[in-house]
Write a protein that binds this DNA or RNA. Structure first.
Length: 547
RNA sequence: GCCCCGAUGGUGAAAUGGAUAUCACGGCUGACUUCGGAUCAGCUAUUCCGGGUUCGAAUCCUGGUCAGGGCACCA
C-alpha cells in the first residue's frame, strides 16, 4: 500500500513538472489523520491530493489536505479488509520483504570469551545481533551468523595458572561425561581465573610466559591439556546458553586464528607505508583521518586487538563472500573500530567499505560498575535464571516460565535504540506488565485461545467500519522493512506494543465468538495472531502457547 | 586537555526539518472477572540553558552546562 501511494505521489509531482521534490509517505502522528500522510507543502497539496484520489480510486475513502500542507489518506473499508485478508492468508509469509534480496550479509555478534563467563553485556550483543540477523533475513537476504571468541590472551593464561591450585578438582571433572557437570566445570574455570588474577602480582613472569606460549601454540603437554579441556568446557557451556536464547551460529572465529594473518597483513602494510614504527611498536597514525593513533603490533611482537580485527576481516572474506558485513559490539569500542576501519580502508578498501559497526550501550547497574575481578558480574545464565524464578510464580511449567523470562529480557533490551544504555535496577528489576515482553506474549495467547474455539459458520455480518486494530495490522510489512533498513529493532518493538494494546482494547470491547460478525472478527483475530507471531519471531521472542 | 556519544513528564523510551510532541511505567479514579485480569477505560505531568538558520526546530548550526565512553603497547 505504501508503495502504491509513493508511486501515485511521484507520478503526480512528475506531471506537475516538479518531480525532484522529495517527500515521505508516513504513518501520521495521530490516528485521526488517517492511515497514511504525505507532506507536500501548501502550494501543491491540493493538486497532489486530487491526483492520488484518481490513481487509487476506491482504495481510499477520504483524502484531505490539512495542516501546513499534509495530504491525509484514509483507506476505504475494502482496502483495509484486503490487507487484513492478506495478513490472514499469508501466514508465516506475512511481512516478508525483498529489500535485501540476492544479498549475502554476515552479522558478527555475541563475542564471548572462553575461560570467562558470558555476562549480560554479551547477552545484549547476542539479543540485538540475533534480532538484526532475523530482520535482514526477513528482507530476503542470505544471512551468515558469526561469533568471534577470544581464546587467547592474558585472561586465558591466568585461568591456566589456576591449575596449580585447583589441579585435583580439574582432573576429577575432566574424566566424566561432557554434559553432566558443565556448571561445575565452568564454575571451576571461574575460580581458576580468580586465583590466577590474585597470583598475578607474585607470579607475573610465569603467567606472562604462559601467555606467550599460548600465542605461539607451544604449550607443554600439561598446559595444553588444561587449555584444550577448559576451552571445550567453556564452548559447550556457551552452546547451552545459545540454545536457551534461541540463537545459533554458522561460523565461529577465534582470536587464536586471527593473530597470524593479522600480524602478516599489518607487517605488509608497514612496508607499504600505511603503518609506522614507533618505540618498537607498529602503529597507525589515525590523525591523518581525524582520529587518534593506536598500536597494532606491540613492541614484544604480539598483535593487539586492532591487528587481530584486521586479520578477522580477511578471514571472514576468505570463508564467506559477503555483500555487507555487520559487527555488533558495545559502544566503548567505537573509537577502536573507527581507527581499525580507517587502516583497513587503506589496505583493502572494498572490505572496509562494506563493513559496518553497530554499537550497543551497556546494561548499567544502579549498584555500580560490573567487574569480573570484584566478583559482581551478572552472568547471562544467572540473569536468565533469576528472572525465570519470578515468572515461575505464575507459570508452574518451567519451560514456559523460561520463555516468558526471555520475552521480558529481550523486550527490555530491544525496546530502545541500539546505541543507548539501559539502566537496570536490580531492586525493581524489569516489568512484567504493561510495556513488556509478557504483555505481547499474553495478547497473542488470548488471540490464539479464541481461534482454538472458533469454527462457527454463523455471524456473516460486516461491521460498518474497520476496527482500529485492522488499520494497524496493515502497516506491519513497512515497519519490519524500516527496522531492517535502519538496524533498529526498537521500531518493531514499539509497533508491536501498540498492536498488542489495540488488540487488548478490541478484546475488551468486542465479542468474537457467537457474535453476528463472527466470521469477520475471526479473520481479524487470525490476522492479528499472524502479525504478532511473525513480529515476535523477528525479535527472537518466544511465542508461548500458554501462560 | 583532545575526540566521540547523549540530555524529551517523577521513571524508562518514541517522534524521517512539518500537524495539538507519542507510548508505557508510577500515582490517582473507575470497569469487568463472559473468548484467560500478566486486561480495559479515564485523569496526571515533558523537549538542559543561551544565541542563530528556517514559512516551520525535540530534530540543523553555534556557545555553554551536565552525564557516559574513548584517547599506543588490554580486549
Amino acid at each position: 500500500m505504501e508503495e502504491r501511494i509513493q508511486k501515485a505521489v511521484a507520478e503526480a509531482l512528475q506531471k506537475m513538472g516538479i518531480g525532484d521534490v522529495s517527500f515521505v509517505v508516513e504513518r501520521p502522528s495521530n490516528k485521526a489523520y488517517g492511515d497514511y500522510a504525505v507532506f507536500i507543502g501548501m502550494k501543491n497539496a491540493e493538486e497532489v491530493a486530487k491526483s492520488i484520489q484518481e490513481k487509487l480510486g476506491n482504495s481510499v475513502s477520504e483524502i484531505a489536505v490539512a495542516g501546513a500542507g499534509f495530504v491525509n489518506i484514509t483507506l476505504s473499508h475494502e482496502a483495509v479488509s484486503f490487507a487484513v485478508a492478506e495478513a490472514d492468508a499469508k501466514g508465516e509469509e506475512w511481512g516478508k520483504g525483498t529489500a535485501e534480496s540476492g544479498k549475502r550479509v554476515i552479522v558478527e555478534y555475541t563475542d564471548a570469551n572462553p575461560f570467562k563467563e558470558m555476562h549480560i553485556g554479551h547477552l545484549m550483543s547476542n539479543i540485538i545481533g540475533e534480532s538484526l540477523a532475523r530482520l535482514i533475513e526477513n528482507e530476503s537476504a542470505e544471512v551468515i551468523r558469526a561469533n568471534y571468541q577470544g581464546d587467547v590472551g592474558p585472561h586465558v593464561a591466568k585461568a591456566l595458572w589456576g591449575y596449580s591450585f585447583f589441579g585435583k578438582e580439574f582432573e576429577n571433572l575432566s574424566g566424566g561425561s561432557p554434559e553432566a557437570k558443565l556448571e561445575e566445570k565452568v564454575d571451576l574455570l571461574g575460580q581458576m581465573y580468580v586465583y590466577g588474577n590474585l597470583d598475578y602480582a607474585k607470579h607475573k613472569e610465569e603467567i606472562d610466559e604462559i601467555n606467550v606460549e599460548i600465542y605461539a601454540g607451544k604449550m607443554n603437554s600439561l598446559v595444553k591439556h588444561v587449555y584444550d579441556e577448559g576451552r571445550k568446557w567453556s564452548l559447550a557451556h556457551f552452546e547451552k546458553i545459545y540454545r536457551i536464547l534461541g540463537t545459533h551460529f554458522d561460523y565461529y572465529f577465534f582470536e587464536s586464528e586471527t593473530a597470524e594473518p593479522g600480524l602478516r597483513i599489518v607487517r605488509d602494510g608497514l612496508e607499504k607505508g600505511i603503518f609506522e614504527e614507533s618505540e618498537g611498536a607498529v602503529i597507525y597514525r589515525g590523525e591523518k583521518k581525524g582520529l587518534h593513533t593506536l598500536v597494532f603490533i606491540t613492541s614484544a611482537g604480539t598483535p593487539t586487538y586492532e591487528a587481530k580485527d584486521i586479520g578477522l576481516a580477511f578471514l571472514k572474506e576468505e570463508r564467506v563472500q559477503s555483500d555487507r558485513s555487520l559487527i555488533v559490539t558495545a559502544a566503548e569500542q567505537i573509537g577502536h573500530f573507527k581507527v581499525m576501519l580507517a587502516a583497513l580502508g587503506e589496505i583493502a578498501p572494498l572490505i572496509a567499505k562494506k563493513t559496518e559497526h553497530v554499537s550497543h550501550g551497556f546494561l548499567r547497574l544502579t549498584t555500580g560498575k560490573m567487574s569480573s575481578r570484584e566478583g559482581n558480574v551478572i552472568t547471562a545464565e544467572g540473569f536468565i535464571n533469576s528472572i525465570t524464578k519470578r515468572t515461575l510464580v505464575k507459570n508452574p511449567d518451567p519451560l514456559i516460565a523460561e520463555q516468558v523470562a526471555l520475552g521480558a529480557i529481550k523486550y527490555m533490551i530491544l525496546r530502545q535504540a541500539p546505541g543507548s544504555d539501559i539502566i537496570f535496577d536490580e531492586e525493581k528489576s524489569l516489568s512484567l506488565d504493561g510495556d513488556s515482553g509478557p504483555y505481547l506474549q499474553y495478547a497473542l495467547v488470548r488471540a490464539r485461545k479464541i481461534l482454538t474455539y472458533a469454527g462457527g459458520e454463523n455471524g456473516t455480518d460486516i461491521p460498518p467500519a474497520p476496527y482500529v486494530i485492522e488499520r494497524l495490522i496493515l502497516h506491519f510489512p513497512e515497519v519490519a522493512a524500516r527496522a531492517a533498513r535502519e538496524t533498529a529493532p526498537n521500531l518493531l518493538v514499539n509497533y508491536l506494543t501498540e498492536l498488542a494494546g489495540e488488540w487488548n482494547s478490541f478484546y475488551a470491547t468486542e465479542q468474537v465468538l457467537g457474535s453476528s460478525e463472527e466470521i469477520y472478527k475471526q479473520r481479524v483475530t487470525r490476522a492479528f495472531a499472524n502479525t504478532m507471531t511473525n513480529g515476535l519471531a523477528l525479535l527472537g521472542i518466544p511465542a508461548t502457547e500458554k501462560m
